[in-house]
Amino acid sequence: MSINTYYTLGKSGLRVSRLALGTMTFGTEWGWGADEETARQLFNTYTEAGGNFIDTADLYTNGTSESWLGKFIYERNLRDRTVIATKFTYNAEPGNPNAGGNGRKNILRAVEGSLKRLGTDYIDLYILHTWDTITPAEEVMRTLNDLVRSGKVRHVGLSDTPAWYAARSQTLAEWRGYEPISTLQLEYSLVERNIEREFIDLGQALGMGVMVWSPLASGLLSGKYKPSEGGSTGEGRLETVKGVSNPAFQKFSDRNWKIVAELEKVAQELDRSMAQVAVNWTANRPGIASVIIGATRLSQLEDNLKALDFTIPAELCDRLESVSRPEAQFPYSFFGDEIQGMIHGGVAVGQQPIGYAPERSIQSTGAGVA
């Protein structure tokens, strides 16, 4: 598999690369990231390799990410070849509660700003960035559907929401004939596997491909933190943002260091970088449609683009699975072999084989809907 192998996203007809380019690093407003010329090199390298799926958000580097992305696409006349995913939710005007959130007023405000910065008249994939805890799914889905009907948006998605909210949103779309959710954008890596409890099955059942962010756990799995060399090199983003409250950057723990140590050993046995192994493992997990890779240096991106050029042997996958397996929690602890055996009378009862029912075989053809 290579970067220029494309798969449909969820149940949609949108064809995307298995590796998406993340542009949260486009701009230096946040104290880290890439300057404009480096960002242009990253964009050009990714697209010249065959990649077509690029992720941004109105939040990223205070809008610089969208503006530069729009400029780079225009410079090379790549709009029709590029699948742009951008996101809304976060407040652009402190003190004004309606300049953020997922209500209709903010969505319609946010989409106009993104279109202007990107220099385009439509967005391929428009994603709710984070659940705001208050806006009903009915309002969100109706507004997103209106944007699709207007031609300003082609497909829609959700990021960082509860599973029940995503399920309700997709059910509303099916019931009312709205544009369905094509993707769930969620954090997933060897050190963050909690979406396996519900989101993977949810995506497969309702036709939403999972689009992964932070497959390198904010740099913890990138190779900058090697236990064999004493841990941190002092260069990683986790060092730069040490002390912030964002949970995405809280990665230092005894459990995670054990995972990093095993990853380093597996990477050495495969003669691959730690980053390549971590991205490869994530991309080949059930239900995963696309993995977002980001970089601040060209060498990082060039390394990540080779992540799908090899296969991790089953024995090494088992070692990574074992060291990173999440602890079973209620009610998921009731879904294992012992309790299920009590339910089914000790007889092995599984789901229908893939392809047995027409709907299962149809779902199995889309990326992330295996």
Rank of each mutant, 00 (worst) to 15 (best):
F252E: 14
S182L: 08
S17R: 03
L147I: 08
D303K: 07
G368C: 11
E93H: 08
I123M: 11
F310Y: 02
N145T: 01
E174G: 13
L118P: 02
V266A: 01
Y188I: 08
Q204V: 12
Y7R: 09
V323P: 11
N284P: 07
D254E: 13
F252A: 15
N106W: 08
I195E: 05
I73W: 00
T133S: 14
G207N: 05
A34T: 08
A248H: 09
G27K: 02
L186F: 09
L221A: 06
S67E: 03
A328L: 14
P286G: 02
G95V: 06
G355P: 05
A267H: 08
N62P: 07
A34L: 04
F199C: 11
E187K: 06
L263C: 09
S361C: 13
A166M: 01
N52Y: 07
A110I: 09
D35Y: 09
G336Y: 06
F334P: 01
G203D: 07
V266F: 03
Q41V: 01
L298M: 08
I107R: 11
P162L: 12
L316E: 04
S290R: 00
I107V: 03
D80V: 11
T183A: 07
F334C: 10
K224I: 07
A99H: 04
F199A: 11
G294I: 00
N280D: 03
E112L: 12
A283H: 00
A261H: 08
P326H: 00
F26G: 00
F334I: 09
S150M: 10
S150G: 07
E93W: 10
S114N: 02
G207K: 03
N246Q: 12
I292Y: 01
R168S: 12
F53N: 04
P180K: 10
Y225L: 13
P94F: 12
I123V: 06
S182K: 03
P313Q: 10
F26N: 00
T89G: 03
L202Y: 09
E75Q: 12
N62Q: 08
G103S: 00
F72H: 09
L220P: 10
D201S: 15
E192M: 10
V323H: 12
L125C: 00
Q329N: 14
N284V: 07
L147H: 00
S214F: 08
M211S: 09
I339M: 15
F330A: 11
G355A: 10
T171Y: 15
Y90A: 11
Q170Y: 01
T135L: 03
N4H: 13
P313D: 12
K116P: 05
A49I: 02
V111Q: 00
L118W: 04
D132C: 01
E139V: 03
L301G: 03
R76K: 15
T296S: 08
E36C: 10
S333K: 14
Y74S: 15
R154S: 11
P97D: 08
A328G: 14
Q340T: 14
N284I: 12
P286K: 02
K258D: 10
T240R: 15
R81G: 11
G177M: 07
T120N: 10
S361E: 14
T47P: 00
G13Q: 13
Q268A: 15
G223S: 08
T38I: 02
